[in-house]
Amino acid sequence: MTLSAERVSRAAGGRLILDGVDLSPRPGATTGLLGPNGSGKSTLLRLLAGVLAPASGVVTLDGRPLDRMGRRDVARRVAVVEQQADTQVELTARDVVRLGRIPHRRSWAPASAADEEAVTDALRRTRLTAQADRLWHTLSGGERQRVQIARALAQQPRELLLDEPTNHLDLRHQLDVLALVAALPVTSVVALHDLNLAAMYCDHLVVLSEGRVVARGEPAEVLTADLVAEVYRVHAEVTRTGPDDRPHVRFLATLPDRADLGPDQTGLGPDETGLS
């Protein structure tokens, strides 16, 4: 038992963002959350973090509904790395990582040896020990993202939620960040845009489209030309040429938007249509 969303829905501005989504990430594994912009990935992560409450359905942690748990208790279990974090405060990398100990400390208590150990350990695991005393605004995008991951690790979570952590990073740093996340012994849920990165680093994929789950399973089952055409409106070729025979997606052309087509047309030949 771990973090689990059951039939969660959430609307904003009269539009349904999530429509009865189930998600039960496998403990210890890395689950990739895919889907076009506006498909509900970020909202789902925010529901899982307990920052937003579902309009219907329930998010549970070890079987207990999140909204019946204290915020601090949730923060000791579930850590979040956002797409982009910024601050005007003059913090060092170590200061930022120390923020991760807040849920573990009482209001007036000074930092314990265990707190400092968790911070040092998180810096070491993210290979930031040498940069620990650098100021946040002097760090590169990749370093900042690693500092945020170190901060999340200092929370000593069992569940880690990441919202497009590779955004704004160069190629090398994208691979670094995802390899780091995939190697962590925690249950992680990562929202991603890049299908090939998802195929390389995730154990399990969940694809959202217009607030509903349209596919889930291992990368090789999920990532098919049909799915890419249906969900992203992109014509693609999928081969098993990634590392460890994982799928690799090669994009060929965009397909017309569904709104531009008649009711019985998908822009594909008859044997290529649809998903079940």
């Binding site: 925010r46 973090a49 307990g50 920052v51 204290g70 915020r71 601090r72 208790d73 949730v74 923060a75 000791r76 579930v78 850590a79 979040v80 956002e82 974090a85 910024d86 601050t87 405060v89 913090l91 930022v96 923020l99 991760g100 807040i102 849920p103 929370q155």
Partner: peptide, 14 residues
């Protein structure tokens, strides 16, 4: 201290 990265970040820190 937890507000350094904004309200959402503070919320995820408990």
């Amino acid at each position: 201290d937890a507000f350094a990265f904004g309200q959402d970040a503070a919320a995820t820190l408990g």
